[in-house]
Amino acid sequence: MPRLIWQELKFRRNAIIGWGLGLCFFPIVYIGIYPSVADQMASLTDLAIYQYMGMNLNTFGNWVGSILLVFMPLIASVYAIINSTGTLAGEEEDGRLEMMVTLPLPRWQIIVAKAIAISLALLIILALVAGVSLLVFGALQNQVETDVTGINIFMAVLSVWPLTFAMGMIGLFLAVFAPSRRVALMLAAAVLIIGYLGPNLAASTTALEPLEPFFLFSYLDSSGQAIREGQWAGDMLVLILAGLAALALAIFFFARRNLTVGVWPWQRPKVARPHSAVQPPLIKE
């Protein structure tokens, strides 16, 4: 198993570097420019679009929260779903998964190794962004009037991991469940977009309020308070449990499916039960 995880991580090396450096854009630019735009930002808070998106920019903590806990998680989640749908459905479509499942590895190990590799890749990417955020903040700290510390920012970035883990595992499940990568990615993107916009829609529309618990982004607090005090542990736990549930479903469906057939589960043939010895056929035609 560790061999497989290591190999899966090696496959993701370039993506980790690329996405990690790309996401560092957020702290470098947005924390970096804060001292020069702080006054203007405070006045933007009244704009309807910012209010609709739940963004409050009147303090450094709120500003950092709006960037590192709103946009950055969205982009990191995009990586999570692209990677997770590509790793199974993509490999299945181009035939590489057939080579993998004909190795002496149980199917659950293949899925779990991929899940761990995706989770570690996300953690490495976020740790890189967190480290860069810490450095940028350290360089500008004396120009910013705030009670937020570098460690607060570092931990805030890492707190995005449970959300991206949940999205990655949902992507993995959809890759197993759906007949093609395209469909899996489409469905995962829909879950992401709805999960992202849902909390604000639910906050502004009474009829949608009961649906709020189903929107994943509602479990990530983007306020300045969350930057200073961290996320609520219960929310983090919900996200991790959602991810684990999706992973369990992925394992369940992958263990029971045929490869390279490209159909929905309900179109797949009813499978004969495995047996330890060769038995007469169940159906005689």
Partner: peptide, 9 residues
């Protein structure tokens, strides 16, 4: 075991 049989072993 890339695909599973509908019947038989």
């Amino acid at each position: 075991d890339v695909i599973r049989p509908t019947a038989g072993r």
